[in-house]
Write a protein that binds this DNA or RNA. Sequence first.
DNA 1: TGTAGTAACTGACAATTATCATGTTTTAAA
DNA 2: TTTAAAACATGATAATTGTCAGTTACTACA
Lengths: 229, 229
Amino acid sequence: MESRCENCIIRQFNSLRALSKDELKKVADSKTSKKIKKGEALFIEGQKLDGVFCVRDGVSKLSKLSSNGKEQIVKLTNKGEIMGQRSVIAEDFTNLSATAINDMEVCFIPKEIITNTLNTNPYFSLEVLRHMAHDLKEADDVIVNMSQKTVKQRLAEAFVYLKKNYSEDENGFLLLTLSRDDYANIVGAATESLIRMISEFKKKGLIKTEGKKIGIVEEEMLQELADGF
Amino acid sequence: MESRCENCIIRQFNSLRALSKDELKKVADSKTSKKIKKGEALFIEGQKLDGVFCVRDGVSKLSKLSSNGKEQIVKLTNKGEIMGQRSVIAEDFTNLSATAINDMEVCFIPKEIITNTLNTNPYFSLEVLRHMAHDLKEADDVIVNMSQKTVKQRLAEAFVYLKKNYSEDENGFLLLTLSRDDYANIVGAATESLIRMISEFKKKGLIKTEGKKIGIVEEEMLQELADGF
DNA sequence: TGTAGTAACTGACAATTATCATGTTTTAAA
DNA sequence: TTTAAAACATGATAATTGTCAGTTACTACA
């Protein structure tokens, strides 16, 4: 897998599209590709990152440990996203851990390339800035949801979100399969509470399950539930 | 109050310090100063902002309405901070409302100046980026606290935060006086629950009150409480 | 292919938090 | 200075959510 960034479609979806041909060449020359197996960590909260990760394939969770020892999932990354930029830009330790939810393919880009380009190419900075602005807005939304909604509402919202962003297979099951524990850590609830709620949703016909797999049956009703009706 | 940005100390604390003399002059020529009274809004969720606000004095709350109609305070701004940049950069409606908690003095800088400078001065972009990276990290922390901590812990944390960031008067009362409602909206709880908790903290000698004013008595114990001991 | 370990699930109960109702105090305006 | 409105406060109760203690089901691997 030594493909050149110049030919990589993924980059169209992130800030790397603002790079010139020359810059892109430099990235391609210094990047390394990695495969990460399901369950493995890309990086861990508190580490110093010496580069960023560009996700070619697979999904990861960005999480943080609370002082009570529970993990909170802050964000799921999409294909094409860049991880670790916050830490590289702020020259700071990561505040989050990244763990592969399924098998992943990522490219690692050393931080020197990133910071150099930030210093010289304002379009790149602006792209990164836009992306971060988007993340910040999403984070605000999460804060409001976490503080003002019940666990039931948050779970309903999570299902709608997953369907919209990670689509489903031919039988109507979410392509992204999360453990009950992961769901609990997204929604911020005890695993047992969450399992009960999944059972309840299933009983009401809002979702269907098949082993770990979950399918969204009544998207509109889930959305209404999430909005408090 | 037609002071020149060139002489304004405030700018040392935000991304405007990356501006050249010329750029600063342009800002000074196009900026307007405003006084905002306690309780008044600087902007409201959903508005299109045509500039950013640089806070010279006073404190404001950035908040967002949940679908249940309750307000959630996402962040308090400090003197020197710039508000509205996320919206201007993303060319997006504001996702937050900004309301003055006490009387404020702010400078309004038209967005054209900001975007022009972002396009031409990479140091400025980088400064803005760093600031946004910081905000994003803080937002992650808030998410974790909101999801994993009890109301009691969150309130304890809020008190410690307020003492650290907004200091206190000669009698040991927090300089920033918030209504019980505001506290409830920071902590994400019903006002009644919050009032009860304040009474409890007071009874235990962790804080003292005098009308609306609140003083932190046992900072370490509050911090421990916040961390779950 | 058995078996250990993990994940999924359920019940009973306790703790936390919200809601409603009501009273008191403070604030601001006539 | 009176008076209405808002903010603060408390009690009773209900709803939500967490915890503990188990059982069952799946998965991996020796």
